[in-house]
């Protein structure tokens, strides 16, 4: 049984009994769709983001560093990518994080695996996919994100590009003693609550606008609209979707509900997945911040390999599914 069934009942009740929309009308259907999706997303966001925040409080980057030093390379790539799942990408911390890892001897490729997985496997995006598409697609998104992070990181590591990291990075010497700020379990819960509240405040306008736009497409756009122009037959659809996704950074919350409706209208899953990954992983603010520690050439190589990885994943899923 669908665990979200009670939410559908609630949405039906709000739409048809309280707001008095006519059952079976297009407008009524769109409103019902809007209420159902937004309630579901906010419920999931609150529960899952809270849980992830608590888990995360046990994985501060200083601990990550310890786990990643002296690892066999590919193992390091995998651990780094996995830790990246629960870590959000914070533009504030990207530079100290990068320097801290590299300085303590974590291989450059492993550091990249972490830097790719953290923003790409975005917690809000994963939650929205879970709510709107179900566990299979959410899992697909997470697994392919981790796979890209591991592979791209591994390739970058093989290329021996250490000389393209800004020179000052190698000169910094950290204090061996790591600072340990003690936290009680109540502290962790409190922080997780604060974080969740903050995040929901930040994303809720996007979610509402996105779900509303999605509901309109759902109700009014003709069936198979996209199957013709952006279907599997069109080889340019995946790269184009990736390009469109780049400037939409941080709007995963608003984008995914629209994507859901576009899939209903015939957009292939792989193309949609590539699009969502480019929304979360290829972002200008992140690139600008990373420029502080990477020479332009390395930044370009990083963006190029990541883009190719995402496009490849798009084709792969279009081909498999």
């Amino acid at each position: 049984m669908d665990i979200f069934y009670p939410i559908q009942i609630l949405a039906d009740w709000i739409t048809y009994s309280i707001l008095h929309f006519v059952k079976g009308s297009i407008l009524g259907g769109a409103v019902d769709f809007f209420v159902n999706d937004s309630v579901k997303i906010f419920l999931l966001l609150s529960v899952i983001i809270f849980a992830v925040s608590v888990i995360r409080s046990y994985l501060p980057p200083e601990k990550t560093k310890k786990w990643l030093t002296n690892r066999f390379e590919i193992v390091g790539n995998i651990i780094a990518a996995l830790i990246g799942i629960v870590t959000p990408f914070c533009s504030c911390s990207a530079v100290p994080l990068f320097i801290g890892l590299v300085e303590s001897g974590v291989p450059l490729g492993v550091t990249f695996s972490y830097l790719i997985s953290a923003p790409m496997v975005n917690e809000v995006a994963a939650v929205m996919l879970l709510g709107l598409f179900g566990p299979m697609i959410a899992l697909l998104y997470i697994v392919s994100g981790v796979a890209i992070a591991v592979i791209v990181g591994f390739i970058l590591g093989r290329l021996k590009l250490e000389y393209l990291v800004e020179d000052y990075v190698w000169k910094i010497k950290a204090n061996c003693q790591t600072v340990d700020i003690k936290k009680t379990f109540t502290d962790r819960l409190r922080e997780a609550y604060q974080y969740t509240l903050d995040l929901i405040k930040k994303v809720f306008p996007y979610v509402l606008v996105g779900v509303a736009a999605g509901a309109l497409v759902h109700g009014y756009a003709p069936e198979n609209l996209l199957a013709k122009i952006a279907g599997k037959g069109n080889l340019f659809a995946v790269p184009l979707a990736v390009l469109i996704g780049v400037p939409l950074y941080s709007n995963a919350a608003g984008t995914i509900p629209i994507v859901k409706s576009l899939i209903e209208k015939g957009l292939p899953i792989g193309t949609a997945l590539a699009f969502m990954m480019s929304v979360t992983a290829l972002s200008f603010p992140e690139m600008i911040i990373l420029r502080k520690v990477l020479k332009p050439k390395l930044l370009a190589i990083y963006i190029a390999i990541l883009t190719i990885g995402i496009i490849f994943t798009g084709y792969l899923f279009n081909w498999v599914l």
Binding site: P60, P61, E62, K65, C90, C92, S93, V95, P96, L97, I99, G100, L101, E103, Y168, I172, K173, A174, N175, C176, Q177, T178, V179, I181, K292
Partner: peptide, 26 residues
């Protein structure tokens, strides 16, 4: 950023009172 790394910290911002880091992150 060098100062943060030298303290053995890898996130920012850091709040320091009397030379002691009391809060990491915002």
């Amino acid at each position: 950023v060098t100062k943060i790394i030298e303290l053995g910290i890898m996130s920012s911002p850091v709040l320091i009172v009397n030379g002691k880091p009391v809060m990491v992150g915002f």
